[in-house]
Amino acid sequence: MNEYEKALENEVNTAVKRLIRKLISRGVDPIGFGLRYRADRTTTEEEWRRWQAGYRGLPVEVSTRVHIEGTGVLK
């Protein structure tokens, strides 16, 4: 099972990373970092535009842990 768990972890990591990058490239903040940034600070529009430009260039790291408990075969 360990081999299958690792393979599935890699597949999920890749798919989620690709989805997050796609959302960010389209101007969406899927995690809500921008909302938190604006809520915690008083920013000018220029500061907000700089933050948005920098946010789009940030690296995305995804880490999952998969644990398969059984094969689903009934006896």
Rank of each mutant, 00 (worst) to 15 (best):
Glu61Phe: 15
Asn13Ala: 02
Tyr55Lys: 00
Lys22Thr: 08
Val12Pro: 01
Asn2Arg: 14
Leu74Ser: 05
Arg38Ala: 04
Met1Tyr: 14
Arg65Ile: 13
Glu69Pro: 03
Gly54Ile: 13
Glu11Trp: 15
Asp29Val: 03
Lys75Gln: 09
Ile24Ala: 00
Arg41Trp: 10
Gly72Pro: 05
Thr14Tyr: 15
Ala53His: 10
Arg18Gln: 12
Arg36Ile: 10
Glu46Ala: 05
Arg38Thr: 04
Trp51Gln: 00
Arg41Ala: 01
Gly34Ile: 14
Asn2Cys: 09
Ser25His: 07
Ile20Asn: 00
Asp29Ser: 00
Leu19Ile: 15
Val62Phe: 04
Lys6Ile: 14
Asp29Met: 03
Arg21Ile: 14
Glu69Trp: 14
Arg26Phe: 10
Glu9Ile: 07
Asn13Thr: 05
Pro30Tyr: 09
Gln52Thr: 07
Glu3Gly: 01
Val16Cys: 01
Gly32Lys: 04
Leu19Lys: 14
Glu5Lys: 03
Asn10Ser: 08
Ala39Lys: 11
Glu69Asn: 04
Lys17Met: 13
Leu74Pro: 04
Asp29Tyr: 06
Arg36Asp: 07
Val73Phe: 15
Leu74Met: 13
Glu46Thr: 13
Met1Phe: 11
Val16Pro: 01
Tyr55Ser: 00
Asn10Glu: 09
Lys22Gln: 09
Gly34Cys: 06
Tyr37Ile: 06
Gly32Ser: 02
Glu47Met: 06
Pro30Val: 08
Ala39Pro: 08
Phe33Val: 11
Asn2Asp: 10
Lys75Asn: 09
